[in-house]
Simulated assay, not measured.
Amino acid sequence: MNDDNSTYSLRSRQQTTMGGGNDETSNGSTRPFATSYSSPSSSTTSTPMSTRRTSPFLPTPLETLALAAYPALLAFGTLFSALSPQTRGAPYDAAAQSHHPDFAPSYFARKDNAVNVLFVKRGWAWVTVAFAVFVATHPSFRRVDSPIRKVRTAITRWALATAGWALVTQWCLGPPLIDRGFRFTGGRCEVAAEAVAEGTADEADVFTAAACRAVGGRWSGGHDISGHVFLLVLGSFFLLQEVGWVAARRGGGGFFGGAREERCVVMSDGAVKGAGVEAGAADDERGERELGIGSKFALAVVALCWWMLLMTAIYFHTWFEKFTGLLVAAMAIYPVYILPRWIPALRTFIGLPGI
């Protein structure tokens, strides 16, 4: 009898464990045993739709919004220039890319305005100083447990962006790409007749806009990609990337806070995951919520870039010259900030802002 009772108890416990038995309530009645197991279908339907990944091959929604500001500024400026009687009626020297100072429709329509001379003409120096101050002062770069790799990859991205700026506007195994494109589309330097006659200049040897101006010539005839647009777009978006994603990952909140998990990357095994999987433990901590003086300085430079981009859109260059300046800037941005997201080996070398 005892053996039968032991056998019965063992079978009851097995049934209960497998979820097939009944559970006795306190009042002696029975009810089906409630298991903690959830079917795959039920767990799938309860998963929030917000976990859907963004494409690692394209800018995130927030980046797309920031990028859209540039063609919007250029389109608004071009439209304003076409509709404003004062701007439309002002004489403009296309070869010199300037309004005559005596007839300029605005102070910012003069190439000798202080912001153009002191800021835009030295634009990449301002971008570099703003970036250096940001890296030197932001808490995420000054933490004792912050890896040296963060600083190294940030400097690498700056070096690549600087190389892009230099190749397009300064030197590319000779003349920069802007000047090469100008000559390729039929442009030439109309050297002053006196300089040619005196033998101090040779029209065939003047290959750059700077050299042309140095001998008193005029750079005209070809398609002049807007160097101002290129510089202002590349410099401001570079700072937005470096400051924005660091502020987002450090819990900056506000404009940056919602962007923290937007970026996705392709892993070495082909899986697509959120960029945060490559962050260290120190990066996942939140606490330094203040932007700091470096971030504010960088954002002030961005704001001034946007203002001068609008002034360029209103008063200088044709719409197609401005468009090509924007296009070339986008071509310099993509390899530094989007391409590493889907090439793991490149990401190891360049890194991602904030990671």
Rank of each mutant, 00 (worst) to 15 (best):
T60L: 11
V117M: 09
I225C: 05
T162D: 03
L79N: 10
L79P: 00
L177P: 03
A210K: 15
T44R: 04
L352F: 07
S55R: 09
A303D: 08
A214R: 15
G19V: 03
G181C: 07
V302Q: 07
S236C: 06
L73A: 11
A90F: 10
C172T: 08
V117H: 02
L79R: 11
M18Q: 12
P48D: 14
C305H: 14
S98H: 01
T25N: 12
V243Q: 12
S55F: 00
W245Q: 14
A95P: 01
G199M: 02
R152I: 05
P147Y: 03
D145S: 10
Y37V: 15
S50R: 13
P139A: 08
Y92W: 13
F57I: 04
Y315L: 09
T45C: 02
L79K: 04
F80D: 15
E63T: 11
L83P: 06
A72F: 05
R249Y: 05
L167P: 04
A166R: 05
F256A: 09
N5T: 13
W307T: 14
F76L: 15
A275R: 12
A66I: 07
A136G: 02
A82V: 07
D205W: 00
H138V: 06
V266A: 11
F131I: 04
L304R: 15
A211P: 00
W219C: 10
W126P: 02
A300C: 12
R188C: 05
W124L: 03
A166W: 09
G199D: 01
A163R: 03
G287K: 08
A279C: 14
K273A: 10
G222C: 06
F131D: 05
G174C: 04
P48I: 03
T16G: 10
A313Y: 02
L177A: 09
A209K: 08
A136F: 04
A75T: 12
T128A: 08
G19P: 02
